[in-house]
């Protein structure tokens, strides 16, 4: 009789499709396929895809690489904490360390140039959130993630943490400069 009682027909599977349902299923299915195809399509023709390049690492190994790289490319320091601002060579690698509760060092990139930015956490999960571009990437401890980015507009950007990482999570913020 109704949905809260067993079907009255012994065989309901052979019921012909109603026109309303049939039409809607076809339309909805086509839309589902379109949405599915959009993802591979964007990998081929789109410009914003998250890199799959990642390696297993340790906090010590990664910090060592990041420190060595920063020593070579630091152009100045900022704030009372003397956080280095690094200016990596265009086309080159830049290392970003996420740790409680700081992004280290600060990056200075050139507009229109492409960089390989390395991301890894020293402790808990952190969330790389670049504002106001609104690019958001999860940063794990034990994994080195390499994303290739091309800043397109000069200016001062912020990196905030948008993965809860403890009591001072909301203080974890940094700058990223894009110069001409």
């Amino acid at each position: 009789m109704s949905a809260i009682e067993p079907p009255v027909e012994r065989i309901w599977w052979k019921q012909p499709l109603d026109r309303v349902e049939g039409t809607w299923i076809v339309i909805a299915f086509v839309w589902c396929i379109v949405m599915f195809v959009m993802m591979p399509y964007w990998h081929i023709y789109g410009k914003q895809n998250l890199s799959n390049e990642a390696y297993r690492t340790t906090a010590e190994a990664y910090l060592k690489k990041a420190t060595e790289s920063a020593e070579k490319t630091t152009v100045r320091t900022e704030t009372d904490l003397k956080i280095p601002v690094v200016h990596p060579a265009p086309g080159g690698d830049a290392y970003l360390v996420a740790r409680l509760w700081q992004w280290w060092p600060m990056l200075e990139l050139e507009e229109g140039k492409t960089y390989r930015i390395h991301l890894a956490s020293m402790d808990f999960l952190h969330g790389f959130s670049l504002q106001p571009e609104n690019i958001n990437i999860q940063v794990h401890p034990g994994y080195e993630h390499i994303v290739t980015v091309t800043p397109t507009r000069a200016g001062t950007y912020s990196i905030i943490c948008n993965e809860y990482c403890g009591i001072n999570h909301h203080t974890m913020a940094s700058k990223l400069y894009v110069v001409k």
Partner: peptide, 23 residues
Amino acid sequence: TLGVPRRHWDMTFAGNPLGYEFA
């Protein structure tokens, strides 16, 4: 859509020289 983070106590980043100023 404007980037405000979830699970975040202070979107004003009060007193933080490196904080971000939301629109």
